[in-house]
Nucleic acid binder design. Structure first.
Lengths: 196, 196, 196, 196
DNA sequence: AATGAATGAGGATTCATTCAT
DNA sequence: GATGAATGAATCCTCATTCAT
């Protein structure tokens, strides 16, 4: 049992419940950065530190690593789904949004590397679900008879491109992503984020 | 896997240099299995245990994780180079050897995922070199004017296929590899190991 | 992954395998003391510290708390069993040995408080087994027709006495143990340890 | 358990002092359950949660763990005292009330295990006082010349019985309590709660 | 007077690496 | 040359306690 007390009685400001929303946002942003920089196995404490909060806050918002990863990916997948649901978006445009996320976050890339033997089963399970959502979003805009129309081809293609998206800078990663889609015979729309 | 642990309490005979060779082979084999099963971040102690040797032996042969990883990958790359150097091997045949390694070992897959932000810098550096050797081996057999003739296209294609090679069983992984090459417009030779 | 290195390169003496036996003994002794002083929920790190070894050594010898507790209790129960198996020991004598352990170690007292709602299930399971061994050892020397002959009476009586054995000093605890046995109508032999 | 959590998002009405009384009762009831289920070391947050109040309320009413424990035990001891003070109650009847509490709450059992080396000193101190009150209540009804008339015998006997009261169900615990009193040569009155 | 978020120390556990034998 | 025990830093996670709202 712990029974600790601050050694000097002083304690950082407690901004009350208002801070909860701010903290959650800070944690997701920090998680995105940390996962991008150090991979999905990065110490969770690093996320709390970067977000400027205590360890406990991290655990309050995300009971385990999976939850933190899920929160980050949820945002990405949500954007793609919204893009696919927006009038006037072509297949190429949606791919552009997807590609933007690929180039922006290695955590998102990891998502497509599902059922790799190593890795946490719970994260993989989550990823399978997200991967399915991405696939369905893309298929909504896929022209009939496209060369990626086959049952698994769409998911496969995304996974393949994701592997191509490496490199130290965003620019390099985007360049490779374009090259990869080209090898698959796909012409991309503008590579950009979508919505908030 | 060797059986040199004393079957009674006595410490195993010190077989001298002979044992060293045997141990190294056992360690590489064990490392290949462990890395394949649990990823490149698996505990090194697991490798020593599976090889049936003490921890110290592991460190004698491989001063750090990078060295162990390198030893495993060296064998894979070596096979591909030998295949490419063998008379009568077509581009498709060499790709078949490469693909065999992709489907057999997730560690080898990791090799192609170089310069990902996350991951150990030393391993990545090594991997870049190996990746280059794979690229050169393939290019020796690449027909002029092939659609993958572009400067980076070959390496890119291999990386892309590697991402497709997931799945719980060898069969599933091979199936996906074939599908991935097909999406790239490449017809494969037989998928098989080459030499010893 | 850890990758730590001593910050000054210096590292305490490594006495080699010889130390393993010594360390295990030190750990069991330390565990006995710590458990006696602070209860079965005491920090395991305290045990390692008192034994003068690193945390890792503790975990090498005892993979979890249960194992550490079991090692301590095993010694106590073993002594009682040996006493019961020794020619010339009366029931009262064996009870004397049992009582010695009760007065010596509150951890041993805890053993008899099995299936309390709170508490670790694994420790309780172990304790049930040990409790049975104590019961069988006592019964070997129990005269026919003794007032504790009933099926559960022996175990019950031991548990009851164990609860009486409280107090800040050994002397006080022994005094109460004697009083408790007297309330149960049992006359004790000498209270003493038995063997090593 | 109370239901004062707002059923919509709004914060619960501030009922003023009225709520304070209700909350205190809910907290004591929750504490009794939690302590019974998970022992005296259970997380305090579990008590607040079960009571349906915030953590802060818990600390307003009980500044520390000891206070919460004390509040629970106070009720138990109070009942026994009231039973002992009620006309027409025999010694056996009072023992029946005591035994009811023993079988109902492992926290109450802990009370009798005073001055065990382990455990929080402050809780033990409190328990000593409560234990004395139980002893005095019993002694009021103790017939002259009873076999438990000795100075410490009464307290000792209660402690001894408390240790016997284990088992997964109330029925089992009551069965063992009866057996324990029988070993002490005491015939019990009805086992039941007394008053509110 | 209540809520419940935040802090942060403490305890459990895992491994990379060293080194006496 | 091999063994395998020991070290100890790092990470995960839990809770007691405070306090803005």
């Amino acid at each position: 049992m712990t029974e600790q007390t601050g050694q000097d009685g002083r304690r950082p400001a407690n901004d009350g419940p208002k801070a909860a929303v701010r903290n959650r946002a800070a944690l997701v942003a920090a998680a995105r950065e940390i996962f991008a920089e150090h991979g999905l196995e990065a110490p969770l404490s690093a996320i709390a530190r970067r977000a400027g909060v205590g360890q406990g806050v991290l655990y309050r918002h995300f009971p385990d690593r999976t939850a933190a990863v899920a929160a980050v990916l949820e945002e990405n997948v949500g954007q793609i789904e919204r893009a696919a649901g927006t009038a006037g978006m072509s297949f190429a445009d949606v791919l552009g949004v997807l590609t933007w996320h690929l180039t922006e976050s290695s955590a998102f890339i990891g998502l497509l590397h599902t059922d790799r033997p190593a890795g946490r089963a719970d994260i993989r399970a989550h990823a399978v679900g997200l991967s399915g959502r991405v696939e369905r979003a893309l298929r909504r805009r896929l022209p009939d008879g496209h060369r990626l129309s086959g049952a698994q081809d769409l998911t496969l293609a995304v996974a393949m491109v994701s592997a191509a998206v490496t490199g130290p800078t965003r620019e390099e990663r985007e360049r490779r992503a374009l090259a990869a889609w080209r090898l698959l015979g796909v012409e991309l729309g503008p590579v950009r984020a979508f919505g908030g």
